[in-house]
């Protein structure tokens, strides 16, 4: 029984880890800047493609772990740069949430169109890290080490962010400007709001780019993968609550595990189950399991 339960958890790990990163990338922006922005899904797509093509170009089909880490770092920095650029050139002109939703979702269309122009729609894969890190056996279940690596990296990053937000003075400035605090008051106290916004966009971009890059060796970089990622991340934010790190982790685990269980036990519900959970959460706890009530 224990082994059975563990099996579902282990099978869900890749989805869990990328959804943690992606959903927090989204909810961080919403929490600190009060901005709805769907561009993160486009960054996810570009992160995946950049990781794969850089890896193929630099390493062929072999694996150098340090090299792969370096490429992941590059992909996340690229993501940060792109999201900041998108904010500076485009998103800061958007006035209301509805505008942001519609405009950034059409920006997603631009992203996938550009990906089609640059890479075509034949998927690109670089699966060496996934294949060559080997597998371990946990209580009779086989799990590729890459899953553990993904989860470890995602959790580590979340811990670092939690430390940054709650234990450093810069983190305090972020929290002061967030939905929890008061932006105008923070501004009056000398917190540079422009800088905070830019840094938030950069961090969000890092998370989204990294999510794409980390998941790419497993499923390949494919045209159209951003739509699915966007839905999973948005639902996780609904379930977990806006701006809560614990909520992001918890929601990602719930979504991932429930889908893995449904895939085997109740295939009819596999696709619908995240939506059902989100709807139920919205009815019972409108602001998410771990969230607080904000203006949104």
């Amino acid at each position: 029984m224990f082994s059975m339960g563990l099996r579902y958890i282990l099978n869900a790990l890749p989805v869990v880890s990328y959804v943690i990163l992606l959903s927090f990338s989204y909810s961080f922006l919403l929490y600190i800047c009060g901005r709805v922005s769907l561009t993160f899904a486009g960054i996810y797509l570009v992160g995946a493609y950049a990781t794969v093509s850089l890896s193929i170009a630099l390493m062929g089909n072999s694996l150098s772990f340090a090299g792969f880490m370096g490429i992941l770092l590059l992909a996340s920095l690229l993501g940060a740069a792109m999201l900041v650029a998108s904010y500076l050139c485009f998103e800061r002109f958007l006035k209301t949430d509805v505008h942001r939703m519609v405009a950034t979702s059409s920006l997603l269309l631009v992203f996938r169109g550009l990906v089609k122009v640059v890479w075509g729609t034949t998927p690109v894969t670089y699966s060496a890290p996934f294949l060559e890190l080997g597998v371990s056996e946990i209580a009779g279940n086989i799990v590729p080490n890459y899953y553990l690596f993904m989860l470890g990296l995602a959790l580590l990053l979340m811990l670092a962010l939690a430390y940054f937000l709650n234990r450093t003075s810069w983190g305090m400035r972020f929290r002061a400007s967030s939905l929890d605090g008061d932006r105008t008051m923070a501004q009056a106290c000398g917190v540079n709001q422009n800088l905070v916004t830019l840094m938030t966009f950069a961090i969000s971009g890092v998370l989204a780019g990294l999510a794409g890059g980390l998941y790419a060796p497993i499923a390949g970089a494919a045209y159209g993968s951003e739509a699915n990622a966007l839905l999973l991340a948005a639902l996780s934010v609904i379930i977990g609550g806006v701006g809560s790190i614990g909520g992001a982790v918890l929601a990602a685990f719930i979504v991932g595990i429930v889908r893995a269980v449904a895939a085997i036990k109740m295939p009819v519900l596999e696709l619908a189950v995240p939506f059902i959970i989100a709807s139920v959460t919205l009815m019972l706890r409108p602001f998410g399991i771990w969230g607080k009530e904000f203006r949104y």
């Binding site: 485009f90 519609v102 405009a103 059409s106 920006l107 997603l108 269309l109 631009v110 996938r112 169109g113 550009l114 089609k116 122009v117």
Partner: peptide, 10 residues
């Protein structure tokens, strides 16, 4: 067309 439509709407 995706790029064109996306840019127009945005």
């Amino acid at each position: 067309w995706e790029v064109v439509i996306g840019v127009i709407v945005a």
